[in-house]
C-alpha cells in the first residue's frame, strides 16, 4: 500500500432514468478495479471508447467517487470531503481540449490562475509560474495571448497550470487527441521530461499505440475491467487479444506479427522503429551472407 494511487475493488455505476425521472436500471462502468500506481511511474491506460478508461481516470483525483470499493490518493480516501484540496493538489488533471482549460487572456496569468485561488504569496506565484513555463518550454510565450498559440502550445500551457500547483502525479486524459503530429510530439516530449527529469508520476490515457509504447507500464481496460497490466513489450505481443477488443498495435509490432504468420522467425516484443529496423537489418543481411 505505498502507491501514490491505490484502488481497491473499485466499482462505479450510474442510474438510468426514464422520461418521468424514475430509475429504470443501472449501468456499471467499472467492475472491481484493483490497482497500485507507484510514485515516479509513467503509466499508459488504453481502451476503446466506452471501455471505462476516462471514468477510471476521473477517480484518480476525486472528480468521480466510487459506488463501491475505495480509491486512496497518497493514502487519503477520495470520499473524505475535508481532504479534497489535498487530493487535487497531489493529483492534477489535464483534459483533451486545450481550449476548454484556458481561462485567462495572457499565458502567464493563465498559469497563475489556480495559485491565485489557493492564496499563494505573489512572489512565490511568480517563481512557480516561471518555473512551470520553463519546464514545458513556453517561457518565451509568457506574455502572449493563448488564442494566438497552436494547439500543442495551448496544451502545454494547460499542463504548466497544473505543474505550478506542484502535484506529485498528473493524469492526462487523451491530451494529444486534438493535436496535429507536431503538437503530439511536443506533448510527448513534455510528458517524458516531467516524468524522467522532475520525477512526476504520469498517467496517460490514450488511443495512440505509439504513445503507450513509450510508457513504463500499460494498463488495458475493456468493459470496465482490467484486461492486461504489464510492460509495453509484453502488452503489444498480445496482437490478437488487443485487436479483439478494438485496439491496435504499433505498426512495427504488426509487421513482426505478419512476418511470423508467413513463417519468418520474428520476435513478438518489438514496439518501436529503431528496434524493428535493426532486427530487419540482421534478418536481411544474414540472408545475403548465405
Amino acid at each position: 500500500m505505498e502507491g501514490i494511487i491505490n484502488t481497491e475493488n473499485l466499482i462505479f455505476e450510474y442510474s438510468i432514468y426514464d422520461e418521468n425521472g424514475d430509475e429504470t436500471g443501472k449501468n456499471r462502468v467499472l467492475e472491481n478495479i484493483t490497482l497500485d500506481i507507484k510514485e515516479g511511474g509513467f503509466v499508459a491506460v488504453l481502451g476503446h471508447n466506452g471501455s471505462g478508461k476516462s471514468t477510471l481516470a476521473k477517480h484518480f483525483n476525486g472528480i468521480l467517487l466510487p459506488t463501491e470499493g475505495k480509491v486512496l490518493i497518497d493514502g487519503i480516501d477520495s470520499t473524505d470531503e475535508s481532504r479534497i484540496y489535498d487530493i487535487r493538489q497531489t493529483v492534477g488533471m489535464v483534459f483533451q481540449n486545450p481550449d476548454n482549460q484556458i481561462v485567462a487572456t495572457i499565458v502567464e496569468e493563465d498559469v497563475a490562475f489556480a495559485l491565485e485561488n489557493l492564496g499563494v504569496e505573489p512572489k512565490e506565484i511568480r517563481r512557480r509560474v516561471d518555473e512551470a513555463l520553463k519546464i514545458v518550454d513556453m517561457y518565451h510565450y509568457r506574455e502572449h495571448a493563448p488564442h494566438q498559440l497552436s494547439g500543442g502550445q495551448k496544451q502545454r500551457i494547460a499542463i504548466a497550470g497544473i505543474i505550478a500547483m506542484r502535484p506529485r502525479c498528473i493524469v492526462m486524459d487523451e491530451p494529444t487527441a486534438m493535436l496535429d503530429p507536431k503538437g503530439r510530439k511536443e506533448i510527448m516530449a513534455t510528458i517524458k521530461a516531467l516524468n524522467k527529469e522532475h520525477g512526476i508520476t504520469v498517467i496517460l490515457i490514450t488511443h495512440y499505440m505509439e504513445e503507450a509504447a513509450q510508457a513504463d507500464r500499460v494498463i488495458v481496460i475493456d468493459k470496465g475491467k482490467i484486461l492486461l497490466d504489464d510492460v509495453p513489450k509484453k502488452i503489444f505481443s498480445e496482437v490478437e487479444l488487443l485487436k479483439s477488443v478494438g485496439l491496435d498495435v504499433p505498426q512495427a509490432t504488426e509487421l513482426m506479427y505478419d512476418l511470423r504468420k508467413s513463417g519468418v522467425d520474428a520476435p513478438s516484443d518489438i514496439i518501436d522503429v529503431d528496434e524493428c529496423a535493426e532486427f530487419l537489418f540482421r534478418l536481411l543481411s544474414d540472408k545475403e551472407q548465405k
Partner: peptide, 26 residues
C-alpha cells in the same frame, strides 16, 4: 509525418538495406 512503417524502411536504408522508396503500408 510519414507512417511508422515508412520510418522503419528509411532507417533500414540508412543501415544499408534498401527495400524501395514506395513503402507506406504494412
Amino acid at each position: 509525418d510519414v507512417p511508422q512503417i515508412t520510418k522503419i524502411v528509411i532507417k533500414l536504408r540508412e543501415l544499408g538495406i534498401d527495400l524501395g522508396n514506395d513503402i507506406y503500408t504494412i
